[in-house]
Nucleic acid binder design. Structure first.
Length: 799
RNA sequence: GCCGAAGUGGCGGAACGGUAGACGCACGCGACUCAAAAUCGCGCGGCCGAGAGGCCGUGUGGGUUCGACUCCCACCUUCGGCACCA
C-alpha cells in the first residue's frame, strides 16, 4: 500500500473491534467513573441519511473522548421500530411491517458498523420486539395503577388521512405532523397519560439539567404556565355558576360581555334557538386551520341570557363564539374589550360597550396603569389590583387565585396496527381489566388487511380480540388501539442499562449504576415531543419508587439539521443524501470528519459535498507522513522545538474544544494545522519530534476518524490508540519565550515587534516606544495615555 | 403578533472586549512530469500604489470604551418555536 486506502484500513479495524468486543461494557462496577453517552435512537425507515451520520459521529467522538479520559462508557444502540411509515408501506405493498422494518434495521446496523461507530452491540434491541414491548406494557400498567393512564371522552385531533387520533404535540400548525393533512376535531373516548400532573415539576427541574436554553424555553412555552384567578359569573335565570379563568382580574370592572366556546356543554341550555345550533355545528365541522385563522373576522351568536359580573353586580350578555377554546381554561371567558384585542374586535363587530378600566393609553391596551372606573379600586396600579380584587372576591366566595397550563394530557392511543398493544381487556361484568403481569406481553397478532377504517385494524383480528376476562374468566374483548410510538421511546434508555433482563424491565441497582444519561445527543426537532415525554416518564417512575433519578438526561446537545436545497430531507421530496455512496468513494473517516468540520455541529446547514476532497487530502497527509516517517522513538529527544510545541498546542486546543463546547470543527482544524506544521518541518526537525507529532496527530484525530487514527498510531508506536489515555498538554510548552508585541495608535494596529514573553509592563511600553513606525506616525502629536495589555499589546492614545 | 437564534471574503466558516478573515473549498502561480493527474510549495477581502506602504472593511444607524465582529439602544433581513391560551 503506497497511498491512503480507506478500503483496506477501515474493514481491518472494524474486524478487530468486533472480534475483540472492544466497545462492550459490563454492568459490574469498577473504579472508573461512568459515562452514559447516548444518541437518540433511529427510526428505521429505508436507509440512514446524512443526518444520522452526523448525529452518531458527534456521539462517537464524545464516547471515545470520555473513554480515553478515564471513563467507563456505555454507548448502546437500538431502533424505534414501531410507526406509521412501515404500516403505510404495508398498506401499499402487503409486506408485513415487521419485514420491512427489520430489513431497514439490518441496513442501519450494517452502516453503523461501516461507519465504525463504537457501539456495545450486546445491548441492541428494537422497540417492536416482544422482549422489549412486554416492558412497555408493564410500564403502562404501572401508570394505569397509579391513575396516570386513564380513558376519557374528549374533543381530540383526528387525522383523516392516517385515520388516527394525534397528540397535541403531533399537530403542527393545525396539520398532522407525519403527513401534513389538516386535522379535524372529533369527540372520542381515548387513552391519556396525565402529564399535566407533572407540569410544575417539569418546569422546576429545568434548573437541574444542562440543556440548551432554547430547548428549555420551548418546553416552558409549551407547558405555558400562567397565574391568574378563577372567577364565578352566575346566571340567575338558570341558577348556574360559571367559572372563568383570567390572568387579568384587575380588569374585571371592564367586563361587558361573556363568551362560551361552541363545544361548551351548556351552550344549548342557554339557548336552543336554530341559529345557535347552526353556528355550533359549523364551528365543530371546521378544521383547526380554518378556525384558527387569525385574520378571520370575529363571529358569534348572542344566547339571549345574562350572567352577573361578581365585582359590580352588573348583568352582562352571553355569546357563543369560536374564538373561545374549550380546551383552555374552563371553555368560557369574561370579555374585557378595552384591554383585550380579541374581545375588542368582537365588541366592534357586535357593537358592545367598551369600558376602559385601566389608564394605559389608546384602546385596546393590554399594558399596566392605574385603575379607573373600578369603584373602590380606582387609582391602584394594575399589578397590585390583581391581588386586591381577587382577595375581595375570595371573601365573598366568588373567586380565588389559580394557575392554568397550556399543556394538555398526552393522548397516547392510536387506531393503527403497527404499535405496542395496550394491555387492557374489557369484560361485560368487570369492565376495564388490566392484563395481569404474568400474561405479558400481549403480542401483536398478524393480520391481512392493514388499511385503517376509522378503527384499529386490530379489531379485525377476531381470534385475538376475543379473550377471557382475567378477573372473572367470562367473555371479554381486548383493547384494539395501539400506543403512540413516543411511548416506546420514552424509556428505551433505561432498558439499555439492563437489556438482557428477562425477569424485569430493569434491575434497580444496575440502573443506578448508569443513569442518568450523562450526554444525550439528538435533533432539535425533538425539543418538545420526545424530550418532554421522557422527562415525564422518569418522574412518574421515580414517584412509583422504581428508579432513583428525577431527570433522564443530565446534559443535552442538539445538533442542527442537515437540509438539502433548503428543505428537510425526506424520501417523498427525493432529496435524501445517502452516506453509503460517499463512504464507498472516500471512506467513513473522511465523511465523518467532513460532516464535523463544515461548521459547529449545533448549527444546521444545507448539504454540499464541495470540500470533502479537502478532508480526504488531510487524512491522506497524516497517512503519508506516517508512511514516510523516519525510524526511531516517538518520545521527543533533546530540546523541544516548534513542532513539539505545535503538537502540545494542538492537544490543548482539541481537548478544550471537545470537552467544553462540542466544537468539532475547530478541533479538527487544529489537527490540520499540526499536520501542516509537520510537512513544513519534517525535513529540518529532529526525527523523534516528527514521529511524536505524527503520533499525536493520529491520537487527536482518532475520535473523529477512528480507523485512520488507529492505523497510524499503531504504525508509529505499535500501540492501540483507544487503550492509551488522552494526551495531556505540557503547560510549559504552551508558552513561548518571545511574543509579537502589537503596537497600536489610538486603537489601530501600526506595528508588531518582538518582545520577551515575560516582559514587565514598563519594559513592554519601552520596547513599543522604540517602534520606528510609531515615531513616524506620531509626527509631533502628544501621547496622552498608554494602555498596556501584558504579553499582547501597547496602545498609545495621542492627540 | 409574541419568544428565541443568527447576519463576517466567491463559498463553508474562525476570532476570552485587544493583530478580523484561523482551517478548509474554489481560484491563480510555481516545482515535479514528454504531458496530464496526483503530490509538494507559494499567493488569495476591497481600493490606491512600481514598491515601501496607505485607506476602507464583520447587515444599517447611533452609543459605551484607550480599543467593539464581540457590550448597550433602535432598525432591516433570514431562520426556528409558539400562535384567538383569555
Amino acid at each position: 500500500m503506497d497511498r491512503y486506502d480507506p478500503k483496506q484500513i477501515e474493514p481491518r479495524w472494524q474486524q478487530v473491534w468486533a472480534d475483540e468486543h472492544t466497545w462492550e461494557v459490563t454492568n459490574e462496577p469498577d473504579e472508573r467513573p461512568k459515562a452514559y453517552v447516548l444518541e437518540m435512537l433511529p427510526y428505521p425507515s429505508g436507509e440512514p441519511h446524512i443526518g444520522h451520520l452526523k448525529n452518531y459521529s458527534v456521539g462517537d467522538a464524545v464516547a471515545h473522548f470520555r473513554r480515553r479520559t478515564g471513563h467507563r462508557v456505555l454507548h448502546p444502540m437500538g431502533y424505534d421500530a414501531f410507526g406509521l411509515n412501515a404500516e403505510n408501506h404495508a398498506i401499499k405493498t402487503g409486506q408485513h411491517p415487521r419485514e420491512s422494518t427489520e430489513a431497514s434495521i439490518a441496513e442501519f446496523r450494517r452502516q453503523f458498523r461501516e461507519w465504525g461507530i463504537s457501539i456495545d452491540w450486546t445491548r441492541e434491541f428494537g422497540t417492536h420486539e416482544p422482549r422489549y414491548y412486554r416492558w412497555t406494557q408493564w410500564i403502562f400498567l404501572r401508570l394505569y395503577e397509579r391513575g396516570l393512564a386513564y380513558r376519557k371522552e374528549a374533543a381530540v385531533k383526528w387525522c383523516p388521512k392516517d385515520q388516527t387520533v394525534l397528540a397535541n404535540e403531533q399537530v403542527i400548525e393545525g396539520r398532522c405532523e407525519r403527513c401534513g393533512t389538516p386535522v379535524e376535531a372529533r369527540q372520542l373516548e381515548q387513552w391519556f397519560f396525565k402529564i399535566t400532573e407533572y407540569a410544575d415539576r417539569l418546569l422546576e427541574d429545568m434548573g437541574e439539567i444542562e440543556w440548551p436554553p432554547n430547548v428549555l424555553t420551548m418546553q416552558e412555552n409549551w407547558i405555558g404556565r400562567s397565574e391568574g384567578a378563577e372567577v364565578t359569573f352566575r346566571c340567575e335565570e338558570l341558577g348556574v355558576d360559571y367559572e372563568v379563568f383570567t390572568t387579568r382580574p384587575d380588569t374585571l370592572f371592564g367586563a361587558t360581555f361573556f363568551v362560551m366556546a361552541p363545544e361548551h356543554p351548556d351552550v344549548f341550555r342557554m339557548s336552543d334557538a336554530p341559529e345557535v345550533h347552526e353556528y355550533v355545528n359549523k364551528a365543530l365541522n371546521e378544521s383547526a386551520e380554518e378556525r384558527g385563522d387569525e385574520h378571520k373576522q370575529k363571529t358569534g351568536v348572542p344566547l339571549g341570557r345574562t350572567v352577573t359580573n361578581p365585582v359590580n353586580g352588573e348583568e352582562i350578555p352571553v355569546f357563543v363564539a369560536d374564538y373561545v377554546l374549550m380546551e383552555y381554561g374552563t371553555g368560557a371567558i369574561m370579555a374585557v374589550p378595552a384591554h383585550d384585542e380579541r374581545d375588542y374586535d368582537f365588541a366592534k363587530v357586535f357593537d358592545l360597550p367598551i369600558r376602559p378600566v385601566i389608564d394605559c393609553g389608546e384602546l385596546p391596551c393590554t399594558g399596566d396603569g392605574p385603575l379607573i372606573n373600578s369603584g373602590e379600586f380606582d387609582g391602584i396600579p394594575a399589578p397590585e389590583a390583581k391581588g386586591a380584587i381577587t382577595d375581595s372576591l375570595g371573601e365573598r366566595g366568588l373567586g380565588k387565585p389559580t394557575v392554568n397550563y397550556r399543556l394538555r394530557d398526552w393522548l397516547l392511543s392510536r387506531q393503527r396496527y403497527w404499535g405496542c398493544p395496550i394491555p387492557i381487556v374489557y369484560c361485560e361484568k368487570c369492565g376495564m381489566v388490566p392484563v395481569p403481569e404474568d400474561q405479558l406481553p400481549v403480542e401483536l397478532p398478524d393480520i391481512d388487511d392493514y388499511l385503517p377504517k376509522g378503527r384499529s385494524p386490530l379489531a379485525a383480528a377476531e381470534d385475538w380480540v376475543h379473550t377471557s376476562c382475567p378477573s372473572c374468566g367470562g367473555e371479554a374483548h381486548r383493547e384494539t388501539d395501539t400506543m403512540d410510538t413516543f411511548v416506546d421511546s420514552s424509556w428505551y434508555f433505561l432498558r439499555y442499562c439492563d437489556a438482557g433482563n428477562d425477569l424485569a424491565a430493569w434491575d434497580r441497582e444496575v440502573l443506578a449504576r448508569w443513569m442518568p444519561v450523562d450526554q444525550y445527543i439528538g435533533g432539535i426537532e425533538h425539543a418538545i415531543l420526545h424530550l418532554m415525554y421522557a422527562r415525564f416518564f422518569i418522574k412518574a417512575l421515580a414517584d412509583m419508587d422504581l428508579l432513583d433519578v428525577q431527570e433522564p438526561f443530565a446534559r443535552l446537545f442538539t445538533q442542527g439539521m442537515v437540509t438539502r436545497g433548503g428543505a428537510k430531507m425526506s424520501k417523498t421530496k427525493g432529496n435524501v443524501v445517502s452516506p453509503s455512496e460517499l463512504v464507498e468513494r472516500y471512506g467513513a473517516d473522511t465523511l465523518r470528519c467532513y460532516i464535523l468540520y463544515v461548521g459547529h455541529p449545533a448549527e444546521g446547514g444545507d448539504w454540499s459535498d464541495e470540500g470533502i476532497d479537502g478532508l480526504f487530502r488531510f487524512l491522506s497527509r497524516i497517512w503519508r507522513a506516517a508512511h514516510d516517517a523516519p525510524e526511531g522513538p516517538v518520545e521527543p529527544q533533546g530540546e523541544p522545538g516548534a513542532l513539539v510545541r505545535k503538537a502540545h498546542w494542538a492537544i490543548d486546543k482539541v481537548t478544550r474544544d471537545l470537552g467544553d463546547r462540542f466544537a468539532t470543527h475547530t478541533a479538527i482544524a487544529a489537527v490540520i494545522e499540526l499536520v501542516n506544521e509537520i510537512y513544513r518541518e519534517r525535513e529540518s526537525a529532529d526525527p523523534s519530534h516528527v514521529r511524536f507529532a505524527i503520533a499525536t496527530a493520529a491520537s487527536l484525530i482518532f475520535p473523529f476518524a477512528p480507523h485512520l487514527g488507529s492505523e497510524v498510531y499503531e504504525q508509529m508506536t505499535g500501540l492501540r490508540v483507544w487503550e492509551e489515555p488522552w494526551p495531556e498538554a505540557d503547560p510549559s510548552l504552551l508558552v513561548t519565550e518571545t511574543v509579537a508585541l502589537v503596537v497600536q495608535l489610538n486603537g489601530k494596529l501600526i506595528d508588531r515587534l518582538e518582545a520577551p514573553a515575560d516582559a514587565s509592563e514598563e519594559e513592554q511600553e519601552r520596547i513599543a516606544r522604540e517602534s520606528e513606525k510609531l515615531a513616524a506616525r506620531l509626527d509631533g502629536k502628544e501621547v496622552v495615555k498608554t494602555v498596556v495589555v501584558p504579553g499582547k499589546l501597547v496602545n498609545f492614545v495621542a492627540r
